[in-house]
Design a protein around this nucleic acid. Structure first.
Lengths: 178, 178
DNA sequence: GATTCTATAGACCGGTCGGTCCAGCGCAAG
DNA sequence: CTTGCGCTGGACCGACCGGTCTATAGAATC
């Protein structure tokens, strides 16, 4: 599921293909997910959000500074993208753009996902001494830059745009300035 | 075409619906676009890129500082998004995430589109006294932030994330600092 | 062992997909 | 007026879409 969405988007694959991959027949899916494809995607979004938040928290805990952590996190994402031949993008971003206007349940799950991501980052930023307002603004910027940079990298089949984005962002990530 | 992609993505609508909207039969489409849906989308991407670059250039020419121009540009995009009920997003971003891995011709057109956008911005940034390298980095960041912020705004059905992103970005947009 | 119920398997549904093809309309050349 | 042809209109194609439904396998209860 995750891989299919990453590569081709929510509307880019069919349930038949998904189930064939998983070796499961349709009856199973509609037994566990009476809501069909949308319900399945909601679950996938929640799982994806959890693992993304977890990986962000992990790198924030591992690195000494927020700046080092965020650089490592975004560079890691770019590296994984490149290693997949620029096929495996962020599933949250893709589903958002495809379905935000047509599937309210999915849109809400995506909103929650991005909120969690921003909140996790903002939390650490405040612990580094920033005001809550500043931490929230910077989190918004960083997550925006993260998604936008990876998006452009996919179009270009080149991660240098991610590196450029990160270099421009670095002055804001050092703890002492405004 | 543009509106359909903005709302539902490349895979979210069918040619039958598109042609019904336009009041044209299929024969016409395949006469003018033998490449089918992909060729049609390539053309749409090029048009969209042109008009986006033009709107960026216009606001850069109109405002006294780059900072004022970029704030106005992104806030304008957020306002249009909100006015459409958060339905009309950036078509370039959506098509990129859906098709970058599967449609090389489309991916190249999208790469060109983002490159033009970054180049137009970088050009003005150098004319404001920045080095070429700095201008390119800041362009990369701004376009990334632009796409990422609008994406999150669609998920949230709320433009405040765009405002936050912009506030965090402002220190980098004033001409004098590093 | 008989009964009950949940979970699985997959055939099947109408609808829509992107794409093809041909009949014929209408204009331009002679 | 006739001919030729570029363009248009839309029926039609096989494939696949998301979703439904029935038969039954298998575990749990008594």
């Amino acid at each position: 599921m995750r891989r299919l969405v990453q590569r081709r988007g929510y509307n880019g694959f069919g349930l038949t293909e998904l189930l064939a991959d998983a070796g499961a027949p349709k009856g199973v899916l509609y037994h566990h997910f009476p809501g069909g494809k949308v319900a399945l995607a909601v679950e996938a979004v929640q799982r994806s959000a959890e693992s993304t938040v977890a990986s962000l928290r992990a790198v924030l805990a591992e690195k000494r500074t927020v700046k080092a952590a965020l650089v490592a996190w975004l560079e890691g994402a770019a590296e994984r993208l490149e290693k997949s031949g620029f096929a495996n993008g962020c599933p949250l971003a893709t589903i958002t753009l495809e379905t935000a206007a047509t599937e309210p349940a999915l849109r809400e799950a995506l909103d929650a996902a991005f909120s969690q991501l921003r909140a996790a980052l903002a939390e650490t930023l405040t612990s580094e001494g920033r005001s809550r307002a500043q931490a929230e603004r910077l989190s918004a910027l960083f997550i925006s830059a993260y998604e936008g940079a990876l998006l452009q990298a996919r179009a270009a089949r080149d991660t240098s745009i991610v590196v450029s984005t990160l270099r421009a962002l670095e002055p804001l990530l050092t703890p002492d300035p405004a």
